[in-house]
Amino acid sequence: MPSLTSLANPTRFLALSGAILPWAAAAAALLFAIGLVMALVTSPPDYQQGDSVRIMYVHVPSVTLAMGCYTAMAISALGTLVWRHPLADVSAKAAAPLGAAFTFLGLVTGAIWGKPMWGTWWVWDARLTSFLVLLIMYLGLMALWRAFDDPARAGRIAAVLILVGFINIPIIKFSVDWWNTLHQPASILRLGGPSIHSSMLWPLFVMMAAFAALFVWAWLAAMRAEIYRRRVRTAELVAAHPTALEPRTA
């Protein structure tokens, strides 16, 4: 098998993702147009929180995607380590900055929402704290990828860390909850919950779908960029060692 494994089936992926990309972009634009109107105009203000409740329509989808993105990375990591699928580590690497961005967005919107609610930008609330730890983990993973020259080796090592983190995140969440209840008796107003009214639920659903479409679009685009980046690298290697791609016998 003379063809390099790193080039084996990305070609088909590039064709497929190229076809999906414009549809994902269009879906995201449409859903955002509808969702933002619903969230900012047609949905009612909260009887307690007033208009500041509207930040929930950005906050909740960000937070959901921040966690969903890590799950996607964990599945990709399994793909790298167990099935050695060449696209799996591209997928994990492309998802990491997106996960970090959504986590950051979740933290910032949480802080902005907290200012009028709690009178302070930041409280060491269990959720905020867990997400801060999650953000550090995303950033650490990105730093780990950057530290290696060889993308294949970086992918395998990062996959191990992703899985370690995946086991650890529930433990961290549990410990932070424990720590929080110990130090701060639950007095904080919580967002969401099952009692949310349908006039707020529908805008939230639409915004969730809009964020999901945006995520799919950005993820595919980042994966394509990573594949092209690796092709450039391979082309450079071939330029330096012209015979490297041809099978040869001793």
């Binding site: 020259d149 290697l237 791609l245």
Partner: peptide, 14 residues
Amino acid sequence: LACSRGGRFVFSGL
């Protein structure tokens, strides 16, 4: 035997 390092073949068919 074939061996590739860093995305290029070092040798193959050995």
